[in-house]
């Protein structure tokens, strides 16, 4: 009798596992758009270590340009938002295992990355400038970085841009922005490419720093799962609608204090 009891136990466990697997695969057939509408809730994967796009306010609530964008999306869908705070390690896994509906984390929409996730049209462009020290007179732009040390936050648009533009520089990549900034401030690196607004703020606080010219113009897009054209199409329609009315330029100025450098590409 006891032996039978045990095998029934195993059958029950197997049954639960199969049921879980089945529900998981069954729900994947439906577009995320329909899932969000039915659920009444948008699961937003957000990156909060990249001011002024995503950061925490004093109450540890998400705030910034990316956050306002997500709120606007939820408003149009007439659903609530559930924030999922992500880091570089779990961002993509959250998205690909259906644990978030989209990721807004100043993703640079490179063709290489687009093999893995689908990107919407870009929602923001911004100037990437080179933050450096006044005393380093021989560094005037990113062209003078041969043999110099460059601090960046790994995987950001600035990392991707400077890796391409300054192939002879020594690029040191940190896990998050505060650590990279601290390393630069402690002169562990000669320069740090960063968003214009951040650089302006730093230069104002520290008289020894200066901006050593423009590195490039970056833009960011929202990441979604591949193979879900309905959802991507809805988001792109959203982008067109609000972009056309200047909403993104307005949001950009709110968080950056300067005008969006170029009109977003349209195609």
């Amino acid at each position: 009798m006891r032996r039978h009891g045990r095998s029934w136990g195993w059958i029950a466990v197997l049954g639960i596992v199969l049921a879980l697997a089945w529900t998981a695969s069954a729900s994947a057939a439906e577009s995320t758009l329909d899932q969000v509408l039915k659920r009444g809730k948008l699961l937003v994967g957000i990156g909060l270590g990249a001011p002024p796009f995503g950061m925490y306010d004093a109450d540890k609530k998400p705030t910034g340009y990316d956050v306002d964008l997500a709120k606007l999306i939820a408003e149009e869908l007439k659903v609530e938002i559930e924030w999922v705070d992500t880091t570089s390690v779990n961002r993509i896994p959250y998205l690909l295992t259906n644990k978030v509906d989209l990721v807004i984390a100043t993703f640079g929409n490179t063709p290489e990355r687009a093999k893995q996730v689908a990107f919407t049209k870009p929602y923001s462009s911004w100037n990437l400038v080179l933050l450096g020290w006044k005393k380093d007179r021989n560094i005037k732009s990113y062209k003078d970085l041969k043999g110099k040390t460059v601090a960046v936050t790994r995987g950001t648009t600035q990392d991707i841009a400077i890796t391409k533009l300054a192939p002879e520089a020594k690029i040191v990549r940190y896990e998050d922005d505060p650590v990279a900034m601290l390393a630069f401030e402690q002169k562990k690196a000669d320069v740090m490419p960063t968003a214009e607004v951040l650089a302006l703020k730093k230069v104002k606080e520290n008289k020894d720093m200066e901006i050593k010219g423009l590195v490039s113009r970056s833009w960011a897009a929202i990441g979604v799962r591949r193979g879900d054209p309905d959802w991507l199409q809805w988001l792109n329609t959203f982008m067109d609608w609000h972009g056309g009315q200047g909403k993104f330029a307005e949001l950009f100025e709110k968080w950056n204090g300067v005008q969006m450098p170029v009109a977003l590409p349209r195609w």
């Binding site: 570089s88 390690v89 779990n90 961002r91 993509i92 896994p93 690909l96 490179t110 290489e112 990355r113 093999k115 893995q116 996730v117 790994r154 995987g155 990392d159 991707i160 990549r173």
Partner: peptide
């Protein structure tokens, strides 16, 4: 880990 995370940041192939 650095090498892996570097590649991840370029390709998003986390798994």
């Amino acid at each position: 880990t650095y090498a892996g995370m570097f590649l991840e940041s370029r390709t998003f192939r986390t798994f």
